[in-house]
Design a protein around this nucleic acid. Sequence first.
DNA 1: TTGTATGCGTTATCAA
DNA 2: TTGATAACGCATACAA
Lengths: 340, 340
Amino acid sequence: MVRPTDSTQPRTIKEIAAVAGVSKSTVSRVLNDTPGVSPKARELVRSAIEATGYQPNRAARSLVTRATGSIGLVVSEAHARIFSDPFFASMVRGATQVVRPLGIHLVLMLAEDQRARDQLLEYLRHGHVDGVLFVSTHAADPLPRILVAERLPVVLSGRPVSRLQVSYVDVDSVAGAGLAVEHLLELGRRRIATIAGPQDMPAGQDRLRGFTEALAAHGVRPGPVAYGDFDRGSGARAMEELLASGAPFDGLFVASDLMALDALAVLREHALRVPEDVAVVGFDDSVAATQARPALTTVRQPVEEMAKALTLTLLDRIKDPDAPITSRVFPPKLVRRAST
Amino acid sequence: MVRPTDSTQPRTIKEIAAVAGVSKSTVSRVLNDTPGVSPKARELVRSAIEATGYQPNRAARSLVTRATGSIGLVVSEAHARIFSDPFFASMVRGATQVVRPLGIHLVLMLAEDQRARDQLLEYLRHGHVDGVLFVSTHAADPLPRILVAERLPVVLSGRPVSRLQVSYVDVDSVAGAGLAVEHLLELGRRRIATIAGPQDMPAGQDRLRGFTEALAAHGVRPGPVAYGDFDRGSGARAMEELLASGAPFDGLFVASDLMALDALAVLREHALRVPEDVAVVGFDDSVAATQARPALTTVRQPVEEMAKALTLTLLDRIKDPDAPITSRVFPPKLVRRAST
DNA sequence: TTGTATGCGTTATCAA
DNA sequence: TTGATAACGCATACAA
């Protein structure tokens, strides 16, 4: 029985070369999948690496390649918002899954306020990361634009507001709102209200548009509309507003599920039953919130899958900075409330 | 008007040396605050750095110092749990504030399941980070113990279950529960129930103990007790249990505020008014949840401050691995519900 | 297909 | 108090 790894870390390429009986260069070539290596030599090196548990030294590699092996995960949003939103959890999980087997570091970067944003910009400019993953739904953020201008590889989750030469992934909000409306129609509801999101954000716009268009497609007049800002709390206000308006409705589509949770609470406070009196469908930005108490039918985003795609896109872009801009729009899925 | 920074990044120590009219060594000494440098030379270098916007190359530095300039933020817990818990938000904010001005990377590492944990362990063993910040309240996690054994600097948020030679910060849960009880007593409540946390976790134990002891100190008999696991959902079950038990109560202390939110919802479902029928105090692990709808009196942790302390402790430990083990216990604060 | 030699930017050792 | 100079571990241009 031999200890496979010494407690002393410093295995080097040289050591592997010695074990494999080749030169350092050959080891390096194998490590980087450089073409011109004989299968025999390649195998020799492979097993030497296997046997010693060797892992290349990031710093040394960085020094010569000018790459850091890290990518930034920038969250330019109020923390409380982000972390109370499990959407972020799934993003991180997806990104991590892609990044970990590659030995790439996912560096957490927060930019809550202007001061933090300035610091962050300075930091990113200094080449501390090879690329940046933006997980921010607030589209007014100037950071992506600046970084793109500086030619730092950048990808976004969520369609950017204005024309920006940057790849992104997004959920098909229009289709999602359509799913919600169709579900409500199937339930026989004909007076369908909505709590829409902010209209200066693409997600807010699209979900309202999807709502309106789907109703129109079925020849049904839309019910009352109130607006929130996607956050917890704003849904309650909007819900109160809808109820106060006096306009009757028997179905409700809520453009975010944090707002939907509020809506449910307010409906209950007003002694309205769900779904008997009002059938509610929420747009699911946050998986866990509804998992906890699955009282809500939701339009669910494949967030984790989206995160993986996003991360892979960034890595591609880092490899080839002149890769074409891509955008992938994922279809959401209707998840019915538990029959409880 | 001169552009302070070229678009080309690669400023080096050599360049600074040339500008300042000294040798590379002197620049390096200034950079690292090495004693033996004349004030004049130091000033020369300082201004050269200032003028050029120079930042040392991490990789080159790493290569020779054998330090990475990164610390890991390990979250060994189900994502959904963590990210639905704004406690984590404040932890990250605090850590970031300490780390950013120092140019240290906060690398996000998730260890949801066993497979991920194994991978992570391997990763950490390979010296990818200089130290590890554990933000995990689950104390059964074997990772800290293993890493401590491997002599990797480690600090914990939350007291570890068993004896472990590791520094930590924690909130004074006993005192916090006491605050809750005293508040309820001041409100004139005498039949005080509790939804306690899991008794295999220090926080769960301490909060129940604080509850019991505070009541005893005031000569009041404790009301019924039900148990949850701190998570959303478990609070609802516990609340139902309390109500089903038939034991009367007019006050309630809930050991986590996710459970407290559940409790509020269930009370409302049962047409019980808060605080008229039952006065509720939650233990606040998550600031934002209660900020959103401040319907709850809570015992609040100074999470951000704790995170700063934790991070500083880790940095100290990295500097001096033989530094004494420390533990800091922070006092929580009672935050009354809005008068709405 | 392989090996040798050079340099990446920094710290650290040694002489001056 | 300072300045040459030798590592650090790797990728790569070039020679073989």
